[in-house]
Amino acid sequence: MNRGNRIIYDQTGKVWIQTGEAAGDILEHDTITELNYIDIEFGSIDYGKQYIESINPITKEPVLKNIEVILTDEQKRLKALEEELSMLKEENKNRDSEIVNTAFEVVNMKLNNNI
């Protein structure tokens, strides 16, 4: 099937969107009976994490979907190593304070005994 270019334009004739031509196993254009718009406040959506899937025609609010993050094997390994490092730091938190206390005692003993 061949599909022609659909052009969306405003009341002055200014072109806003063109779909472009398409050929192959594609769907025909839907019939448009009404066009509306909404303005989204700048910065209100993190487009790096979400996208606008559609607009709820009743509430006039955007329907947001999260962008699925697919990690590479390298990113998965890095995440696992970061988690392991975090666990090791937590496990050794008490041990670090013991080492510092022991070192402090050694220094005090040396100072008190003029060593």
Rank of each mutant, 00 (worst) to 15 (best):
N101P: 02
I26N: 13
I17V: 15
I58K: 09
Q50D: 03
D73N: 13
V69F: 06
V15D: 04
T59Y: 08
E105M: 12
I45G: 04
A23E: 15
L88S: 01
N113T: 14
D46G: 00
G24H: 07
N92S: 05
D73V: 00
N112R: 15
L35N: 11
A80W: 06
K110D: 12
N2I: 10
I45A: 05
Q75H: 08
Q50L: 04
G48M: 06
E41S: 07
A23T: 15
G13S: 00
L85P: 05
K49S: 11
N66S: 12
I99V: 14
T33P: 02
K89W: 01
S54V: 05
S86C: 06
Q50E: 10
M109N: 15
K60A: 10
G13V: 04
K76H: 06
D10P: 01
Y51M: 10
L85H: 04
E61W: 03
I70L: 04
E74Q: 07
D25I: 12
I40G: 02
V107C: 10
N5P: 00
V100H: 07
R3V: 15
S97N: 14
V107I: 13
E28Y: 07
N108H: 02
K65E: 14
K79I: 01
N2F: 15
Y51N: 12
R6W: 07
E41Y: 04
F104E: 15
G4T: 11
E41R: 01
L111G: 02
K14L: 02
E82W: 03
V100P: 00
K60I: 06
K110Y: 14
E74W: 00
D25G: 09
I8G: 00
A80Q: 13
D39C: 07
P57M: 13
F104G: 12
Q75P: 09
S44I: 01
I55E: 02
E91A: 08
N66W: 06
D96I: 15
P62Q: 01
E28A: 14
G48L: 09
I70N: 08
N112W: 04
S86H: 11
D39H: 08
L64Y: 03
K89T: 04
T59G: 08
L35W: 08
L85Y: 08
I58W: 01
L81C: 00
Q11W: 02
N92K: 01
T59R: 03
I55D: 06
